[in-house]
Amino acid sequence: MKKIRLLTILKSILIFLSLFSSGFLLAQQQTASPKTKSDFWRKVQFGGGIGLSFGSGYTDISLAPSAIYNFDQYVALGLGAQYTYVKQKNYYASNLYGATIIALFNPIPEIQLSAELEELRVNVDLIGSDGNSQDYWNTGLFLGAGYRNGNVTIGARYNVLNDNNNIYGNAFMPFVRVYF
Rank of each mutant, 00 (worst) to 15 (best):
71 F>C: 03
161 L>S: 06
4 I>W: 02
77 L>V: 14
130 D>S: 15
108 I>Q: 09
90 N>L: 12
145 A>L: 10
88 Q>T: 13
153 T>V: 11
5 R>S: 15
121 R>T: 15
101 I>P: 02
99 A>T: 12
33 S>T: 07
24 F>D: 02
23 G>W: 04
62 S>R: 06
127 I>Q: 15
137 W>F: 13
30 Q>N: 09
114 S>D: 13
84 T>Q: 15
99 A>I: 10
26 L>P: 05
93 A>I: 08
167 I>P: 07
47 G>S: 07
137 W>G: 07
128 G>H: 12
84 T>A: 10
23 G>R: 07
28 Q>P: 02
49 G>I: 03
80 G>F: 03
31 T>K: 09
163 D>K: 06
3 K>V: 12
16 F>Y: 11
46 F>G: 09
43 K>H: 14
56 S>D: 15
34 P>D: 03
175 F>R: 02
37 K>E: 07
70 N>I: 03
79 L>M: 11
70 N>V: 00
154 I>V: 15
79 L>C: 02
66 S>D: 11
78 G>T: 07
42 R>I: 03
85 Y>V: 09
82 Q>I: 06
177 R>E: 06
106 N>Y: 06
73 Q>D: 13
16 F>S: 07
170 N>R: 02
171 A>L: 08
88 Q>D: 11
79 L>Y: 05
45 Q>L: 10
152 V>W: 05
110 E>F: 12
19 L>K: 04
97 Y>W: 15
156 A>S: 11
19 L>R: 00
169 G>H: 00
51 G>F: 07
116 E>G: 02
41 W>I: 10
37 K>T: 13
118 E>Q: 14
111 I>V: 15
24 F>P: 01
66 S>P: 00
126 L>M: 13
141 L>I: 12
7 L>T: 05
176 V>E: 03
116 E>H: 09
138 N>C: 11
130 D>A: 14
40 F>Q: 03
40 F>C: 07
173 M>V: 08
82 Q>C: 04
49 G>W: 01
16 F>E: 04
40 F>V: 13
59 T>I: 14
124 V>P: 01
1 M>W: 08
33 S>W: 04
52 L>F: 14
108 I>E: 11
150 G>Q: 11
79 L>R: 04
86 V>F: 00
28 Q>W: 00
69 Y>G: 03
39 D>A: 00
83 Y>D: 04
99 A>R: 00
132 N>T: 15
81 A>M: 13
69 Y>H: 05
164 N>L: 03
35 K>T: 12
140 G>R: 13
33 S>K: 05
19 L>W: 00
41 W>T: 10
63 L>Y: 08
94 S>A: 14
13 I>P: 03
57 G>A: 08
166 N>Q: 04
83 Y>L: 10
95 N>Y: 11
11 K>Q: 08
32 A>K: 09
111 I>R: 06
138 N>P: 09
107 P>K: 08
53 S>N: 13
73 Q>K: 12
124 V>W: 01
149 N>S: 12
31 T>G: 04
